[in-house]
């Protein structure tokens, strides 16, 4: 197991309440409820593979420190719910990561292009077809990561077994379905 390599840069001069409030609004979480016990970092399955631990994300969010927007952790949270299940203060760090990644994208500070591609391609796919087409998603992500060969041993047999069909299903009522995306345009930052 590796350490979380501390990659926070910059200095603390003051608290950026503007960013702090925006994170609170987007995530629906009360940042000051967190007293930084570290239980989220302790249980987080992915934290040991990231740059900063979840409780550091929480601390930087409390400070409204912009460096958090450049972290990899906020993109690679897998939403497994371990942190919120065990948090003594009923805070959900996963929701904070989610909010931060949205702000990070807006500010052009994305650290994990592949994670961004995963969620964007995923949503694009369902927007266009109503359902996910796994093969398309995998190919698009391979394009994003440039790593074409690592999963061929898994993918080719699956493809041959017909478990990754070329043609996918499209829902009938796509017109109304698409409205669900438009209706929320304001919230889509």
């Amino acid at each position: 197991m590796r350490g979380y390599s501390m990659k926070v840069s910059g200095q603390l001069r003051s608290i950026n309440t503007h960013l702090k409030r925006e994170i609170e609004k987007l995530s629906g979480q009360k940042l000051d409820a967190c007293y930084l016990c570290g239980k989220c970092s302790a249980g987080c399955p992915v934290a040991p593979y990231q740059d900063i631990a979840p409780h550091v994300v929480m601390r930087l969010a409390q400070l409204g420190h912009k460096s958090v927007l450049e972290s990899k952790m906020i993109w690679n949270c897998v939403s497994c719910g371990t942190c919120v299940t065990r948090c003594p203060n009923n805070v959900d760090p996963a929701k904070v990561c989610e909010a931060l990644s949205r702000i990070s994208k807006r500010e052009g500070l994305v650290n994990s292009k592949v994670a961004l591609a995963l969620r964007e391609k995923f949503v694009d796919l369902i927007k266009n077809r109503g359902r996910v087409h796994e093969l398309t998603l995998v190919i698009q992500l391979k394009m994003a990561s440039g790593d074409w060969f690592s999963d061929l041993d898994v993918g080719i047999p699956m493809f041959l077994q017909g478990r990754l069909p070329i043609s996918g299903h499209r829902i009938k009522d796509l017109k109304n379905f698409k409205k669900l995306f438009e209706g929320n345009k304001e919230g889509n930052k």
Partner: peptide
Amino acid sequence: KAADTLAGLPVE
């Protein structure tokens, strides 16, 4: 399973 929050290390 824990984390040393001062050192920034996962603990197992």
